[in-house]
């Protein structure tokens, strides 16, 4: 099942964050609990662990995108051979 990774709300006062570095690239397998991405919040750089196990299917934003509002989709994790309809998956995040 495809899971959407959002810019996490990592703190009560955090409204947006920037991506410092992806620790995985598209196609990499990932386990729940494994470091996935480093983000910069209003307070600090945070290493964000994946909540899902599967393959990093799509990266939707990167360090060049600047401030990204919390809860905006930044990646999709799914199964190896899964065909994902991105538009449908991301529709509810508009």
């Amino acid at each position: 099942m495809a899971n959407v990774v959002v810019m996490p709300r990592s703190g009560q006062t955090m409204e947006e964050g920037t991506i410092v570095e992806w620790l995985k690239k598209e196609g990499d397998p990932i386990q729940s609990g494994e470091p996935l991405v480093v983000i910069m919040s209003d307070k600090a750089n945070l290493e964000i662990e994946s909540d899902y196990t599967g393959v990093l299917k799509k990266i939707l934003a990167g360090p060049d995108d600047g401030d990204i509002e919390c809860l905006t989709p930044i990646a999709v994790i799914g199964e190896l051979d899964e065909v994902i309809n991105l538009n449908a998956l991301l529709a509810e995040y508009k």
Partner: peptide, 13 residues
Amino acid sequence: LAVMFKNGKIPSG
């Protein structure tokens, strides 16, 4: 709850 927090489901800390 940790996952729900990251996904904005918890309005407090």
